[in-house]
Design a protein around this nucleic acid. Structure first.
Lengths: 214, 214
DNA sequence: CTATGTGAACAGCTTCACAGCG
DNA sequence: CGCTGTGAAGCTGTTCACATAG
């Protein structure tokens, strides 16, 4: 008996995201079609892998020609949910939080930054961002009402490691379904809440290891 | 015939790094020994995985007891190269670059931030960081001499996507062996130069995908 | 002749399960 | 017993190679 698998493997999802971004920047170019090999070349992958990934979108490549870029972009957007903007919030307006908040506005338009939170009373009420779409920093007690009012699904967590689990718990209680965690600590969460951690220290350490030996 | 494998798998290296950090913060606690199951619990892993990872350090766990924390820490440091500080530089002093430069001084002391670079003439000469160990921003033409003088092996790349490959090429020519890239683009490099990319947009998109369906 | 789509082989990691040791 | 160390089994993702389509 085969295990029925109709979801997309995590590594493929990551690459689909790369394809989308690359193709969007290619869209205004002269070509209106692209072959798996070309895309692979640009992104440092193999042609077979690109093709396999793209089959998760259904089949629509043209044999002997390649993939129609506009169609491909449309399908990628649809599959990844990039055809609608997703509301997000940031907790912790320190250096990293602020950097992400102001990061190329906000990120490719696909994500809308709805609110900023911090526990430091001195920061409350201050605004981040350029004039028109500057966003005020709110106290943590406003977390739950804000999340529920705007139906926010994802949060970016950029608080110190000591506070990370507490804040995560509050986010989860308030209904958040996904957390992008920058604190260098493991966040405990129920299965229906997804956590992704970006850990600069660990990445540096890995790089250090890879370049050290031999 | 077995494939003779004396290197450590990449996923294991990442976890070894997590073990080290966790154990360092546990070192002043009452316990001087830890079992694979406990460590696994803290980090959200399985006991078997922890044990398998730790065998890459050689065998020194005590049956029925666990691992001696000081010994374990020592071996982890040695294996990961965390027993000596590694010199690093940052190119691109925008929001992210600045955030990382000032990030908990600098990162656990294992990495020493030797220099900062930016292409913007207005930023040259400015200093980042607290008084005593503030670091001046240098122009890109100082890249090569600085890298060679200090024998810097790793670089953190926080420039805009458009400049990333150019700067990477210059870093590589100057002798850099590993690059931690924050630009949302694939960096091309020879095999003997390791690239690790942290891509916030892609991570967010993945999280969005994972929390969207069902 | 070119490039897709895909079953099948392969490789790499993780999990299992248990022998061995204090 | 309790917990390590580890072959073996299991899974998942990648690569191969080729039938297929235009």
């Amino acid at each position: 008996m085969q295990k029925p698998r109709n979801d997309i493997p995590t590594p493929s999802v990551r690459r689909l995201s790369l394809y989308l971004r690359e193709l969007e920047s290619l869209q205004n170019e002269e070509y209106d079609t692209i072959a798996s090999g070309q895309l692979a070349e640009i992104l440092g992958l193999t042609a077979a892998q690109v093709r396999k990934d793209l089959t998760y979108l259904g089949q629509f490549g043209r044999t002997g020609v390649g993939y129609e870029i506009p169609t491909l972009v449309k399908r990628l957007r649809k599959t990844l949910g990039a055809d609608k903007t997703s509301k997000t919030l940031i907790v912790g307006v320190g250096n990293i939080g602020r950097a992400i908040a102001t990061y190329s506005g906000f990120i490719d338009k696909q994500f809308e930054l709805v609110a900023l939170f911090d526990s430091d009373p001195k920061k409350i009420g201050k605004k981040i961002g350029r004039k028109a779409d500057a966003i005020s920093i709110l106290p943590l007690k406003r977390l739950k009402p804000t999340i529920q009012k705007h139906k926010i699904r994802m949060a970016i967590l950029t608080v110190p490691a000591n506070d990370a689990q507490d804040v995560a718990d509050r986010l989860i209680k308030a209904g958040i379904r996904g957390i992008l965690n920058f604190a260098p600590i493991h966040i405990e969460a129920p299965d229906n809440v997804k956590i992704r951690s970006l850990d600069v220290a660990t990445e540096l350490e890995q790089l250090n290891f890879m370049t050290a030996s031999r």
